[in-house]
Amino acid sequence: MDIHVNDISYVYQKGTPFEEEALSNLSLSIQHGIIQAIIGKTGSGKSTLIGLLSGLLRPSKGSITVGEDKVTATTKKIPFRSKVGVVFQYPEHQLFAETVYKDISYGPTNQGIPAEEIKNRVYHAIDLVGLDESLLEKSPFSLSGGQMRRVALAGVLAMEPSILILDEPTAGLDRIGSEQLLSLIHHLHQQKQVTIILVTHQMDEVARLAGQVLVLEKGQAVFNGSPVELFSERSRLDKLGMEPPSLTKLIDRLNERIHPPIPTSLFELDQLVAHLELRRKVGNNE
């Protein structure tokens, strides 16, 4: 299910003194099954884009096509809302039901899915996020922060979306929590072939997961391409005011001394180690 964003603009509070254009003339194509990262500073229009892609907002201008469904400024009912799952920032703050089971089943129930099927989905979802089934009868508020976040994620996965939007999924988690969540995302993408739209400030996450990355600045797309392309050109990063991933930073430091420079397209420590090994062997042979 491909996504095509065609020359859209979005204006908040049109016709009031607080009128503000959050996105202007943005175009973007997201192929089905890829991980698309979206990065940009606060106020760059990321949240608005999430709202539009998830069908919660209509563009003021232009159109968005998801699969067969097209949405413009005048579309009444947005048809693709149920195909797009959104996990907002700090999703554990949106839990509400007495039990984990009830909370996860909220989405599928709203979709009008038969009870038997809902049960299957809840069990499947809790399994996907790596939580034990014994938690299903507990109150979500008795769980740890990391567990609550995974329950919230399960609540979205139980709706079986073909497109999954994740807004800062690791915000506020410590290393173990973040790592669990990232490998979960990776796993989901591999296993379920869903399109994942990852909104994040963490360049390490972008480098590790994304196939394509969009950079927003003041409501406009200033870059769209592969992470390698983005992170290998240091001057552009500086101009965008962005930090490279931590491994790229280390390579940059090494390159202050080492010639010819190590390529900045390496995003995994193993790759860097292998590269250095190779260089050392070549060096010893000379």
Partner: peptide, 13 residues
């Protein structure tokens, strides 16, 4: 607004 959007995205009517 945030919570409302989150629940709308989960199909709240």
């Amino acid at each position: 607004e945030k919570i409302k959007n989150a629940q709308l995205a989960r199909g709240a009517n």
